[in-house]
């Protein structure tokens, strides 16, 4: 299973979500997108949005105020 990474550090809404949207369009079903972000809103709005799109999604706080969001493209 291949994965792709996007760097959304130091970026605020709506850039992380739009970057994820753009990247997911180029990916195949089953691939995993890993987003690095330090914007706390992203763990709400990106996660909610990805769920609504029907993707598998989870996130982990990798360090204080930094997260990795994992999105598995489902469709």
């Amino acid at each position: 299973m291949s994965q792709q990474r996007i760097d959304c550090m130091y970026e605020a809404c709506p850039i992380p979500l739009l970057k994820a949207l753009k990247k997911l369009k180029t990916m195949k079903v089953g691939e995993v997108l890993i987003m690095e972000t330090d914007h706390s809103c992203s763990i709400t709005n990106v996660v909610e949005w990805a769920k609504k799109q029907g993707h598998e999604v989870d996130y982990v706080e990798i360090s204080d105020g930094e997260w990795e969001i994992y999105i598995e493209k489902k469709q």
Binding site: Y10, D38, G65, E66
Partner: peptide, 18 residues
């Protein structure tokens, strides 16, 4: 709020474009 949640972090300017 950020300190209570231990989410405080100094942010930098990413690049000139930003």
């Amino acid at each position: 709020a950020a300190l209570l949640a231990s989410e405080f972090k100094w942010k930098i300017i990413k690049n000139r474009r930003q």
